[in-house]
Write a protein that binds this DNA or RNA. Structure first.
Length: 459
RNA sequence: GGUGGGUUGGCCGAGAGGCGAGGCAACGGACUGCAAAUCCGUGUACACGGGUUCAAAUCCCGUACCCACCUCCA
């Protein structure tokens, strides 16, 4: 009956025991807002949205924090290349991201802190680390501050690596680092190349935060020094999460009890960040598929499984989902009921959405057989709701592909033709009957004959 | 060099010692004037080679190939 989750740190599925009974604190690394969101970015958000909804369904009061990194090297570089202020690029991309989340019914987090809004908290943490002997200001006058990995013996514990086995960072010249693996907590302002707006005052001179420190500072601020779950994409395990863990623990914080990482979604066997064109950007995908179909596609695979994206599989998934929708339409308006035990058991087992989906489809089949499908429909809606896939959720916007006035007009026009067709059929004049059906089909209206008479829908 | 993951039927995608997850597609049947939808039925898949076991896709050893991370990354 308890929820079990795979923890990257211990490499095993274990019972989820919250620090505080009945509550769960979850911190998920959001995005660096430097470019338009693609399918891969959104997978992470959807996966953790499902986690959040399931924890909530299980009666936990979830505090869900997802940050936004709105200042970093890439943002500065790209903005400069585009000839616009970095904060304008970051803000624009942030709005694109919000739109993508909304289109996929990703619930807004409890709070979404941005790095630039938490510089004081970061400075405080950095000073604390210096005071404890785990960080130092570079001696080359750059204004950088580094975390001293050699001062923290358990460095590498999250990803089970030993410092001496790691390749040294090649990116940066050693600058003022004591060890090449030391990472930046604070980056001194480079007057020559960086705008003044990208620098904040600090005890070491103007500069900006290093990447990792923001999460330690913000998680601490909103969830406390120790919290339950920290999530993100697999690529973040190292260095990002390893460094967060090191600096937080070195500062004396308990930090996260569980670490969860979602797997990649690739195209043509390649990581999306190296991506090919922009066909996988969310707005572009949404021109071909509805948000609910894309979400279904993402939820149907286990979050820790690598997914090879293709429009063919998305198409296939959409067809499968439409089967569920068609069942609900036939069943009529039903309030969500209880989730079947088998479904709950699947979800409890490290968010086993594939097995949960199997239960969902089994219920649909049973419902299609039943003379009164109400109970099955109620269960189906409950399962869909917890996966964020309930078609009746107002978050998906108006359904039916048009406003009410328009559909009333179409209905009036179509019913006239349907009456003619009914007459033809009654007289066994199937040539006329089929001609009417074909003509409507060309116009995009699909006719089906049911025991209750003819029904029409937009194709 | 270090660390982790993968290879399952035509396709997608679960499972982690015994009983064929589920979806898509295909084929046959029921229903239908014909369709659509729906239901019923049809598949001896687990990279390769050894081994352990009464029993292996699942455990062990070895091999091949693929992927990710090692300080920009969801």
């Amino acid at each position: 009956m308890s929820i079990r989750l795979y923890d990257t740190a211990t490499r095993e599925v274990r019972d989820f025991a919250p620090l505080e009974e009945g509550k769960a604190g979850v911190y998920v690394c959001g995005l660096t807002v430097q470019s338009e969101p693609h399918v891969g970015h959104v997978r992470s958000a959807v996966n953790f949205d499902v986690l959040r909804r399931w924890l909530t369904h299980r009666g936990l009061e979830v505090s869900f924090i997802r940050n936004v990194t709105d200042i970093d090297d890439k943002i500065l570089t790209k903005a400069a290349a585009q000839g616009r202020p970095w904060y304008n690029l970051a803000y624009d991309m942030k709005r694109e991201l919000d739109a993508a989340y909304a289109a996929l019914n990703v619930l807004p987090p409890t709070y979404e802190p941005a790095a630039t809004g938490h510089v004081p908290e970061m400075l405080e943490l950095i000073e604390h680390l210096i005071a404890k002997g785990h960080a130092y200001a570079a001696e080359d006058g750059s204004g950088d501050v580094y975390f001293d990995v050699r001062s923290w013996p358990s460095y590498g514990e999250l990803t089970h690596q030993r410092i001496d086995d790691m390749e040294a960072a090649e990116d940066a010249d050693p600058r003022g680092k004591r060890d090449p693996r030391d990472f930046a907590l604070w980056k001194g302002w480079k007057k020559a190349t960086e705008p003044e707006t990208a620098a904040w005052p600090s005890p070491w001179g103007p500069g900006r935060p290093g990447w990792h420190i923001e999460c330690s500072a913000m998680a601490g601020k909103y969830l406390g020094q120790a919290f339950d779950i920290h999530g993100g994409g697999v690529d973040l395990r190292f260095p990002h999460h390893e460094n967060e863990l090191a600096q937080s623990r070195a500062a004396g914080h308990g930090f996260a009890s569980y670490w969860m990482h979602n797997a990649w979604i690739t195209t043509a066997g390649e990581k999306m960040s190296k991506s090919l064109g922009n066909s996988l950007l969310i707005p572009s995908v949404l021109e071909r598929f509805r948000g609910i179909e894309l979400r279904y596609y993402l939820v149907a695979a286990h979050y820790r499984s690598h997914v090879e994206f293709s429009f063919d599989s998305l198409e296939e998934a959409a067809t499968g989902f439409q089967r569920i929708e068609a069942f609900l339409e036939r069943a009529g308006a039903v309030e969500p009921g209880e989730v079947p035990d088998a479904f709950a058991a699947a979800m409890d087992d490290d968010l086993g959405t594939p097995a949960a989906m199997a239960v969902l489809f089994d219920t649909v089949r049973e419902g299609n057989k039943a003379t009164d499908p109400t109970g099955h429909a109620a269960a189906v809606r409950a399962m869909l709701a917890v996966l964020g896939l309930d078609p009746a959720d107002p978050a998906w916007g108006p359904t039916g592909g048009g406003d009410d006035r328009m559909s009333a007009v179409v209905d009036a026009l179509v019913s006239g033709l349907l009456e003619q067709r009914a007459t033809a059929r009654a007289e066994k004049d199937f040539a006329t009957s089929d001609a009417i059906r074909d003509r409507l089909k060309e116009a995009g209206v699909e006719i089906t004959d049911t025991p209750d008479g003819q029904k029409w829908s937009l194709a």
